[in-house]
Design a protein around this nucleic acid. Structure first.
Length: 569
RNA sequence: CGGAGUGUAGCGCAGCUUGGUAGCGCACCUGGUUUGGGACCAGGUGGUCGUAGGUUCAAAUCCUAUCACUCCGACCA
């Protein structure tokens, strides 16, 4: 390919709309152009990268026996009403009407469609297991699209769905998918972690998210400093202290704390660290109207954990301030666990505190030097908070660290949530009707492109891992228009490398070398080969690998072998 | 949905306070000189100043409405 036939549209300046580096570089390199909020056109250059990702995904899906198909992007409302998600999904689901006023949605995912398809095809357990996948455009009307294709409204996803007669079969396919995902992200040259994930409102059990590690990631991941334990922060458990609680050292004291309402203000007012101040939150109880939850001041309540507690309402709901005042006689900010006439649940870490500060249930007053059992009975304790860096790791190896991640894949043992709702049934070995057990498995194809850039860039632009690069090799002739020999050699080399299976971009624009170099670096081509009169005379090529900072001169006789050794996996 | 902000040439911006010929850099076009790390000279193309009303002799500028986009937040006391 030549630049005269494959126009590059690089930008020297960074458009203001781009916040994160991958978005900036994708715009500057001319891979994408924005059409509207969360909607992007992929340019010829960008599409080449997208296709590279898709190719790897398809190979690995095919390798585990998943069957590619293609479902409609537009889906009838009836199916979503049948699964109950027409109500549940909310405004993220883009709903449209056709000319007959029939309702449809633009598919954000395809559980309903695949389950409907399968229930029509599936008769017997002998047909199982089944595993289908597609690579397709999805639409989710995000609250706030941002970061370019990282969180776009329209995006490309590989989604796969499996159907099973029993849980063992589901687990086997789940494991095969899990392994395939690891191969995909490894082949794409990404640093990633598979993390245990919350199964959320969909239900079911067994779920892992695959995260590419990057500071700009929108998700917090807790991982063990030793071993391979990793989990979404909301999922990482915390534990009771292994040591006994310290003994009280001073009598409880009531102290005025005017104007000090937040933990930060109280801690500052008393000149104490935040972890010595306990906060008491009122949440909706499952049977009681309210339940008090006590946490260390420096910890955050985890509402997923809270909603799973038998005393706390699911879904989780915080008590509004006015109601809290009525229940405790104090405004939020002065509430404490002493003397409450509602159930009290104390987080493990808060239960381990001695000589702590808490609200006095009287406006503008706090208690200091409070101790469990001596001053207030310690009743129910539980794991109710988000893990933080330094907490003991659940695998018993070292402590937890927190990193940011970009979710690029998700595997999920769905169970029968959809197959039951849509009556996807088959006859089992006994000839009895049984409901299919399902799994679903997604990969954010377009998001991977952005995630890869987050991990692979430098001051000059993108540094593609070889399997993702739009072109493997850039050939830059110097003064080709004045030196016919240089031009001829550039064209000869282009033909030869192309014949060997490399994707080659020959820069025939005749620009000054600095401009050509800068463009090829910005768009991240792994190998640049410079053709010059000087090099021809010396019988060698000047080469530069994108991830290195020095040129290497390679003898002409040795070039092809050297290129193979650098670019072939 | 709440708050803040921005809409002026393809991109980055100035002009608006104090109304009076719409500008700068990059990009693009023509000619010339250049040619190993984003060249230089000269001359050009390109804008209903987001949109619609209003005030005024006169509106990018003041007023009202509206649309789009961006950022922050969406209740952890």
């Amino acid at each position: 390919m030549r630049t005269s036939l494959f126009p590059l549209s690089t930008l020297k300046e960074t458009p203001t709309e781009a916040e994160i580096i991958s978005h900036q570089l994708m715009l500057r390199a001319g891979m994408i152009r924005r059409l509207a909020s969360g909607l992007y056109t992929w340019t010829p250059l960008g599409l080449r990268v997208l296709r590279k990702v898709e190719a790897v995904v398809r190979e690995e899906m095919d390798a585990i026996g998943a069957l590619e198909m293609l479902m409609p992007a537009i889906q009838p409302a009836e199916l979503w009403q049948e699964s109950g998600r027409w109500q549940k999904y909310g405004p993220e689901l883009l709903r449209v009407k056709d000319r007959h006023s029939r309702e449809f949605c633009v598919g954000p995912t395809h559980e309903e469609v695949i389950t409907d398809y399968t229930r029509r095809e599936l008769k017997s357990y002998r047909q199982l297991p089944l595993c289908y996948y597609q690579v397709q455009t999805k639409f989710r009307d995000e609250i706030r699209p941002r970061f370019g294709v990282m969180r776009a409204r329209e995006f490309i996803m590989k989604d796969a769905y499996s159907f099973h007669a029993d849980v063992e079969s589901l687990k086997a396919t789940y494991q095969a998918m899990f392994d395939a995902y690891c191969r995909i992200f490894t082949r794409l040259g990404l640093k990633f972690r598979a993390v245990e994930a919350d199964t959320g409102s969909i239900g079911g059990n067994g779920s892992h998210e695959f995260h590419v590690l990057a500071d700009s990631g929108e998700d917090a991941i807790a991982y063990a400093t030793h071993g391979d334990y990793a989990a979404n922060v909301e999922m990482a458990p915390t534990y009771p202290a292994s040591q006994p609680r310290p003994a009280p050292s001073a009598p409880m004291t009531r102290i005025a704390t005017p104007e000090a309402k937040t933990i930060e203000e109280v801690a500052h007012f008393l000149n104490l660290p935040a972890h010595r101040v306990l906060k008491t939150l009122l949440v909706r109880g499952r049977s009681a109207p309210a339940v008090a939850v006590v946490l260390r001041g420096d910890h955050e309540l985890n509402d997923i954990k809270a909603a799973k507690h038998p005393l706390i309402a699911d879904p989780f709901e915080l008590i509004p301030p006015a109601e809290a005042l009525a229940l405790t006689g104090a405004n939020v900010g002065s509430i404490g666990p002493l003397g409450l006439n509602i159930p009290v649940i104390v987080d493990f870490a808060a239960a381990d505190c001695a000589d702590f500060v808490c609200g006095a249930n009287e406006e503008g007053w706090h208690l200091t030097q409070v101790n469990w059992d001596r001053d207030v009975p310690l009743g129910e304790t539980a794991d109710l908070r988000n893990a933080i860096a330094g907490d003991p790791a659940p695998n018993g190896m070292g402590t937890l660290a927190i990193a940011r991640g970009i979710e690029v894949g998700h595997v999920f043992q769905l169970g029968t949530t959809y197959s039951a709702a849509l009556h996807c049934e088959f006859l089992d070995e006994q000839g009895k009707p049984a409901t299919a057990i399902m799994g679903c498995y997604g990969i954010g194809v377009s998001r991977i492109v952005a995630a890869a850039i987050e991990q692979n860039h430098d001051a000059n632009g993108i540094v593609w891992p070889v399997p993702l690069a739009p072109f493997a090799i850039a050939i830059v002739p110097i003064n080709g228009h004045r030196a016919p020999a240089v031009q001829a050699e550039a064209e000869r080399l282009e033909a030869e490398l192309t014949r060997l299976g490399f994707s080659v971009l020959l820069d025939d624009r005749g620009l000054r070398p600095g401009v050509a170099f800068a463009d090829m670096e910005l768009i991240g081509i792994p190998l640049r080969i410079v053709i010059s009169e000087r090099g021809l005379a010396a019988g060698e090529y000047e080469t530069r690998l994108r991830w290195e900072s020095e040129n290497q001169n390679i003898a002409a006789s040795n070039l092809l072998a050297w290129v193979q050794s650098q670019l072939v996996e």
